[in-house]
Design a protein around this nucleic acid. Structure first.
Lengths: 193, 193
DNA sequence: CCAAAGTCGTGACACAGGTCACGGGACGGT
DNA sequence: ACCGTCCCGTGACCTGTGTCACGACTTTGG
């Protein structure tokens, strides 16, 4: 992907929430590092430090918790173009990851170290506003997910997912979808919409 | 509760994350309104607008979703002294509440209207930083709750709750606790720790 | 001080979903 | 072209949890 494309995706993403001058965006942009990852590659691995926060330019990732005894995976989030994804707690507290983040497709990302993140916030208060909006949206999405897990059956959750993320249906295998919805692969397979 | 106590609780709460000068805190404090609520009173009611965000000085509240057909309640959060609680989405978007917030005990709160919230953020960037930290903590707590719902049995979730919130066990009836854990009152009653 | 409402345990039964096992098909790497 | 790996459906069975019903105790409010 060419340089001007990467920049423009990030800029458009930020400017959905806060307008930026050219100089301000130049300041933002220089804190990020571009990286590529291959399918099956781990961008974050349990037990390892998490040096970056990731803004995805293309591809698809999953954020996953793996039960160490049973090896059973629970997927906290999928992420794709124009999304942020991370074991944010480990990143933000500079501790070892308890989650893993794995590429389901070849993925390009703009990466932001915690030091750069803090420099960005300190140097440009607007960006703090931007992240407050982002995290708030994530918090509210989490609340909806909690409610959905508490009140809805597997079939209802499946329907909700299909309605809200139809494009992902084509890209993620049912096994992964089951791990996201919190049901076994077999039960998901038996659900007719 | 006396005026200086109310102020000092709020100030201590904020200063756990960001230090404030006396003038800065005076600016913060004047945007809040003090209000009292009685047990069983609704601070937020489904279908109504949500004029305030609430910082609790004393008492105990629950944030609850009620299924309209079955009347079954699911509790998203308990809140007590030193906590914020609200149907934040309705508050922030100035829409009607989909959740309700009800007092389980007589409760005192400092209330912040959305206009005052925005004035506060605009007038004192530090406060934006404070709320970013708060919302981030809430987001991460939500992630942990999602994982807990996906991976743990009712009994394990009960144990986790007891371990993390022992004080609440004395104050909230089992019925409410069941609605928080996402199990029926009867199953909770059958669980031996 | 009494009535109404809330709290809590427990038994009987139903059912959604988990687990285990199998087979067949698609795909990727060598 | 082949082999291993993943993907997906399906049957049989098991189990955790929901639902309904009942009774006893405690708290609350007028």
């Amino acid at each position: 992907m060419h340089n001007y494309m990467m920049q423009s995706k990030l800029r458009q993403h930020i400017e959905k929430l806060v307008p930026l001058t050219d100089e301000e965006f130049a300041f933002v942009e220089k804190h990020f590092v571009y990286m590529k990852f291959k399918k099956h590659q781990f961008m974050v691995q349990r037990g390892e430090p998490v040096p970056y926060n990731y803004f995805l330019l293309s591809g698809l990732t999953k954020l996953v918790y793996t039960n160490e005894e049973t090896e059973k995976q629970s997927i906290l989030a999928f992420a794709m173009e124009d999304w942020w994804d991370n074991d944010f707690e480990a990143y933000y507290t500079r501790t070892k990851a308890t989650l893993s983040m794995e590429c389901l497709e070849d993925t390009e990302a703009l990466c932001l170290s915690l030091d750069d993140f803090n420099a960005l916030r300190a140097g440009l208060p607007k960006i703090e506003h931007f992240f407050l909006e982002k995290v708030t949206a994530g918090f509210l999405a989490g609340q909806r997910r909690i409610l959905s897990l508490m009140t809805s059956s597997a079939q209802e959750r499946y329907k909700q997912f299909v309605a809200q993320h139809p494009s992902l249906l084509q890209r993620v295998p049912k096994t992964q979808l089951a791990a996201y919805l919190g049901v076994s692969r077999e039960t998901l397979s038996r659900l007719d919409l």
